[in-house]
């Protein structure tokens, strides 16, 4: 009788040691040895200090930086989340209207009949680090004015930073917003506000 009750608990204990302690420690060891940058969050650095993660969006509000996708969460806190609004949600359409107005107001290049969806709809994670190239391009004019550089140089920077589909057919073309903004800051001839 005692065996019937206690053996399952003991087996669970053995599996806990193996899959709950040994396995994650083993993977941590391998990950930290072979891919330390990735295992620790793919951080990006500027002037010797970490300024964020390549994979995690951070908020940008100033005209001189590319702005990423809208988010359902506060990106500076360690949280992730989505709006979870359905396709007939009135709340979604209300906030969408405001976002579209804001985008059109500050970006002369924006065509308000044909906006790229990712620029005005919230992402799945709330931390999407990317934009479609189109969503970046329509911000070029605003950024060029704010930085007093040519629009062409901003467009060239975007084009240079486009990440293609992996292996030619996986996923989507995209640009990384934080990397793009770091590249902006590193541009020669850029004038600070």
């Amino acid at each position: 009788m005692l065996t019937i009750v206690l053996r399952p608990l003991f087996v669970l204990f053995l599996f806990s040691v193996l899959t709950g302690v040994v396995y994650p420690l083993f993977i941590t060891g391998l990950g930290q040895s072979f891919f330390p940058r990735q295992a620790n969050g793919s951080l990006l650095w500027q002037g010797g200090k970490p300024v964020g993660s390549e994979l995690i969006a951070q908020p940008f509000s100033k005209a001189r930086y590319f702005q990423g996708r809208p988010s359902a969460v506060d990106q500076i806190t360690a949280n992730s989340g989505a709006s979870n609004y359905g396709p007939t949600s009135a709340k979604l359409m209300d906030s969408l209207k405001e976002r579209i107005a804001a985008v059109v107001r500050s970006n002369p290049l924006a065509d308000k009949e044909n906006l790229p969806a990712d620029l005005v709809l919230t992402s799945g994670s709330g931390l999407d680090p990317h934009l479609s190239p189109k969503a970046a391009l329509l911000q070029a004019d605003r950024i060029a004015r704010a930085r007093r550089i040519t629009k062409e140089s901003v467009i060239a920077l975007i084009t240079k930073n486009v990440e293609q589909k992996q292996a030619g057919f996986l996923g989507a073309e995209r640009v990384n917003v934080l990397k793009l903004n770091l590249a902006l800051d590193a541009m020669k001839g850029a004038v600070d506000e």
């Binding site: 579209i100 906006l115 990712d118 990317h130 989507a172 995209r174």
Partner: peptide, 18 residues
Amino acid sequence: LKNSGIHNGLNMEGKEVR
């Protein structure tokens, strides 16, 4: 979404660009 001004009404709400 299309009527609101989104290109092709593409439903990117809740989806990731990559």
